[in-house]
């Protein structure tokens, strides 16, 4: 499976308040939350983002609060995946639990520029920059996380376990 989309670039330490400000946490609806995605980092972002687009950030993406509304809003806006140098741990865990594909690559995070067209292979983690004609390899997804994705996320695994 491959994702194709336009890159939207961000800097270091993008926190979950920037991804989805707390003032909007009175809803859990993906479409409603998506209307305010990244608003405090870039107020124009909700208007600019298109289905399939890819968020590219530097280190420690998703730091701060545990709010799952952050990956929900990203998915709700139709963003296909996120590429960053590193992720805050709760955001990392939430993304896998919710089935939001996220990739780690220093090279991709440094070389990709705003508006570059990208193609990301889900299984191999190979990131192609179609605008620049470059390729970057993301770190392999740990086997445990791969199993979680194959089962359909954490709650699917729980459902299987309780036999409901």
């Amino acid at each position: 499976m491959a994702f194709k989309g336009k890159a939207h670039t961000f800097g270091d330490d993008i926190d979950t308040d920037a991804i989805i400000p707390a003032r909007y946490l009175v809803s859990t609806d993906p479409k409603e939350l998506a209307k305010h995605l990244m608003e405090d980092a870039d107020p124009e972002f909700p208007q600019k983002v298109r289905a399939g687009d890819i968020i590219v950030a530097r280190k420690n993406f998703g730091c701060g609060s545990s709010r799952e509304h952050a990956p929900i809003a990203i998915k709700g806006a139709g963003v296909s995946c996120v590429i960053a140098k590193s992720y805050a741990r709760i955001f990392y865990r939430n993304s896998f639990n919710m089935g939001l594909p996220i990739f780690e690559s220093d090279e991709a995070a440094e070389k990709i520029e705003q508006g570059d067209k990208l193609e990301v292979d889900m299984d191999s983690g190979l990131i192609k920059n179609l605008t620049k004609g470059e390729e970057y390899q993301a770190s392999a997804i740990p086997p445990f996380m791969q199993d979680l994705i194959k089962t359909g996320g954490l709650m699917a695994a729980v459902k299987k376990k309780i036999g409901a």
């Binding site: 545990s66 939430n94 919710m98 954490l154 709650m155 695994a157 729980v158």
Partner: peptide
């Protein structure tokens, strides 16, 4: 340790977490 709502839902049901 803090987690998101899915992890918490799993723990509320199973009493376990990874």
């Amino acid at each position: 340790a803090g987690v998101g709502s899915n992890d918490l839902a799993a723990a509320m049901i199973t009493g376990e977490a990874w």
